[in-house]
């Protein structure tokens, strides 16, 4: 199983990114799908617009993996909505994925900012 997940991540990086954003959003408090979308939009200073349809597919995927759990509740403006919250596994995943992401951005940054050709490395 473990090996399988890694290969998934490598292939679809964007998908992993959305997962990470969702997990991060849920760290503070449980939230429904629409709230998550709004939150991501707001907190990224309107840079990251999440396609709402894809968001719900991602939510379902995370729920299947038991990284988040969900139950129906009432929203702040008195509407029925499905609220998601982070599970223990999800929290652990968030830590792992965040550090992975940070390593990735650092590595990307190193390469992009250095702007040099390939260098010889020790085997």
């Amino acid at each position: 199983m473990t090996t399988q997940k890694k290969s998934d991540d490598r292939i679809s990086l964007l998908q992993g990114t959305l997962d990470l954003l969702i997990l991060k959003t849920l760290v503070f408090k449980p939230c429904h799908g629409q709230g998550i979308a709004r939150s991501i939009l707001r907190r990224s200073e309107e840079v990251l617009f999440v396609d709402h349809g894809s968001l719900y597919v991602a939510l379902q995927r995370l729920e299947d993996r038991k990284w988040i759990s969900a139950e129906w509740g009432i929203s702040e403006n008195n509407r029925r909505a499905r609220f998601y919250c982070l599970t223990a596994t999800g929290r652990a995943q968030l830590v792992e994925k965040s550090s992975e992401w940070q390593r990735l951005t650092r590595a990307m940054g190193l390469i992009l900012e250095a702007g040099e050709g390939p260098q010889g490395e020790e085997a």
Binding site: H32, G33, Q34, G35, A37, H52, Y56, Q60, S75, N77, R79, R80, A81, R82
Partner: peptide, 14 residues
């Protein structure tokens, strides 16, 4: 799932 989508659309509209 369909109900959740409906709820989302209403929330967003509001």
């Amino acid at each position: 799932f369909a109900e959740e989508i409906k709820a989302h659309l209403e929330l967003e509209t509001e």
